[in-house]
Write a protein that binds this DNA or RNA. Structure first.
Lengths: 238, 238
DNA sequence: TAGATTGTTAATCGATTAACAATC
DNA sequence: TAGATTGTTAATCGATTAACAATC
């Protein structure tokens, strides 16, 4: 980190609040790409370069970053590690967050083996399932060494581990009940893989990953393409 | 389907094009909830009810549906199966779409066993992997009976199956190359699970599912909550 | 200083919302 | 007819974009 910037940008930013949702959703991508650049030994990057690597326009990138503060240098660009640090701080990645995964079927197993957790400061601190075949299974991957606990222990696992984030990888018909127990146990951030609209109190943040929705959006556009190809009379190349 | 509506809404709609992206992204949710209502034997639903079940406001729901046409009845509500049919038609779910999955590790296995494909008219028509341990494995689940093929056969599998959608469940460092081969083989719709910004021609539609991004967005809000709780002086209950 | 690049401004675009006229 | 509920309108809000003044 450039120590020459020690005194920082003197609070010209949005007073720490009010970063637009659309910007927050892109910060993780900027962060990942910056880490890749740092690994490659790149020290400085311009908004044009970084934007291209992130798949956004330079204007959008600069606008997004301006919400965090003023971490670039005109005429030069951005110091890769300095910017990376400030994004990670803004995202809350400087603290480690404990994650409990409820449902250790195919998807749950895939999540546990996912290496993106630990590398971003997330730690899996609990695994729960209701199926006797899975309960008691010991799962050991890089950074994880846990035994699957029965659903009855959900509240105890959350309390003991101090988990902040709950991942619901359970079947659809169990999802709402799991969600309610997580919330009652004190979890306020939930990542839901079940194809269900969860009902939660206002203070709880739910994000949903829905394979079927993504596929259906693709199908919509695919159909448009097929229809277009069929309806338009073939235009002769000149 | 109410045959009394046989003659349809006489093209008052947006001429088939121009359904806003935000609306398209919600249609699959409406469709799923409507199917659930139909299964429960519900014949008619008001925008207030349906909106509540979908977790959106009634105004937004009606606005969204108005882009498809005029499929409700004032004073009554929407015929569940009639509306469901028109949404599925708009989404392109009346035709079956072939899906090829590239990468049959933990995530790929989870995807194959996901029951949401077939129930929405998607059919897995090819599985590919580069790992010798996985190649040749026969995978049989409800509706799927396939052998994992080596990566070298990607082009042949796409051509033979006529697949329209490619799912990239391969490691990050293979994703761009897989993507290019899919596109060269004629695939125009890609669902990408690899944490990589794919570079594709304009005519290709890529949707990305990124676990790390979702977790980091949750961490951002979680941090805000924690900070708020720490900074605000404790307010006495009156 | 001259060239490069940021951070900000103002214009545009698209999405959301509330209210209500149309109409079953 | 009276009550209910849609489909549409107009206002608001938030996100994107292009251009450029600030400044390294």
């Amino acid at each position: 980190m450039s120590l020459s910037r020690r005194f920082g940008p003197s609070r010209t930013r949005d007073e720490g609040r009010g970063i637009p949702d659309a910007t927050v959703a892109r910060l993780p991508v900027y962060h990942r790409v910056l880490r890749g650049l740092a690994d490659d030994g790149v020290l400085t990057v311009s908004s044009d370069h970084l934007a291209a690597a992130c798949g956004v326009s330079p204007a959008k990138l600069r606008k997004d970053l301006s919400h965090l503060g003023s971490y670039g240098t005109r005429g030069v660009g951005y110091d890769v590690s300095y910017l990376s640090y400030h994004i990670s701080r803004e995202l809350g990645l400087s603290k480690p967050w404990g994650v409990v995964i409820v449902g250790v079927g195919n998807l749950g197993h895939a999540l546990v083996s996912y290496r993106g957790f630990a590398s971003r400061g997330f730690e899996i601190v609990g695994l729960l399932d209701s199926h006797p075949d899975v309960i008691g299974e010991r799962i050991t991957t890089s950074g994880v060494d846990l035994v699957v606990r029965p659903m009855a222990e959900l509240e105890a696992v959350v309390a003991d581990s101090g988990a902040h984030i709950g991942v619901i990888a359970a079947p659809a018909d169990a999802a709402q009940s799991v969600c309610e127990r997580l919330v009652a146990a004190g979890v306020r951030s939930i990542l839901n893989f079940a194809p269900v609209v969860l009902v939660v109190p206002d203070e709880v943040e739910v994000r949903k990953v829905d394979l079927a929705v993504e596929l259906q959006i693709l199908a919509f556009h695919e159909q448009r393409r097929v229809d277009d190809a069929a309806q338009l009379p073939k235009v002769m190349p000149a």
